[in-house]
Deep mutational scan, measured.
Amino acid sequence: MAAGGDHGSPDSYRSPLASRYASPEMCFVFSDRYKFRTWRQLWLWLAEAEQTLGLPITDEQIQEMKSNLENIDFKMAAEEEKRLRHDVMAHVHTFGHCCPKAAGIIHLGATSCYVGDNTDLIILRNALDLLLPKLARVISRLADFAKERASLPTLGFTHFQPAQLTTVGKRCCLWIQDLCMDLQNLKRVRDDLRFRGVKGTTGTQASFLQLFEGDDHKVEQLDKMVTEKAGFKRAFIITGQTYTRKVDIEVLSVLASLGASVHKICTDIRLLANLKEMEEPFEKQQIGSSAMPYKRNPMRSERCCSLARHLMTLVMDPLQTASVQWFERTLDDSANRRICLAEAFLTADTILNTLQNISEGLVVYPKVIERRIRQELPFMATENIIMAMVKAGGSRQDCHEKIRVLSQQAASVVKQEGGDNDLIERIQVDAYFSPIHSQLDHLLDPSSFTGRASQQVQRFLEEEVYPLLKPYESVMKVKAELCL
Rank of each mutant, 00 (worst) to 15 (best):
T38R: 05
L331I: 12
N297P: 03
P446Q: 03
S434L: 11
A335E: 01
L406E: 05
D129I: 14
Q205D: 01
D332C: 01
S395E: 07
Y472I: 14
E50P: 00
L130Q: 08
L362H: 06
T119I: 07
W39F: 14
T354N: 10
L468W: 10
Q286T: 03
E80L: 07
L128M: 11
T354D: 05
G104D: 10
L44V: 13
D129Q: 12
L55E: 12
K264D: 05
D248S: 01
E79F: 12
A143V: 07
R303N: 04
Q320C: 10
F30P: 00
S9R: 13
D11E: 10
K66T: 13
M316A: 09
F74S: 14
I269R: 03
D317C: 09
W43Q: 07
A453H: 05
V364W: 07
D430Q: 12
A163T: 02
Q221P: 01
R337K: 12
M312I: 13
R171E: 02
P298W: 01
L183M: 11
L179R: 02
E50C: 08
V226P: 02
P153S: 06
G259Q: 00
S448A: 15
V414P: 06
Y294S: 01
L152K: 06
G200Q: 05
R371I: 01
L314I: 10
G156N: 02
L155D: 04
G4N: 15
I62K: 06
S151E: 10
V390S: 07
N68K: 10
F95K: 01
A308F: 03
T111P: 02
K147S: 12
T204P: 00
D178N: 07
L255G: 04
S412Y: 15
R270W: 02
R303T: 01
V368Q: 05
P281D: 08
Q210W: 01
S306F: 01
C399W: 06
F232T: 02
T202Y: 00
G96A: 12
N274R: 03
V364A: 06
H400V: 06
Q184Y: 10
L222M: 08
I237Q: 09
I358C: 15
S257T: 09
D144I: 15
L179T: 09
G5R: 07
F157G: 04
M299E: 01
V254A: 11
K187E: 09
R303M: 04
L346G: 09
Y114P: 01
L272R: 01
S407G: 11
N384E: 05
A49Q: 02
R426H: 06
K477G: 12
C483M: 14
Q221W: 09
G240R: 00
A381V: 12
I176V: 13
Y466Q: 14
A110Y: 00
L444K: 05
E213V: 12
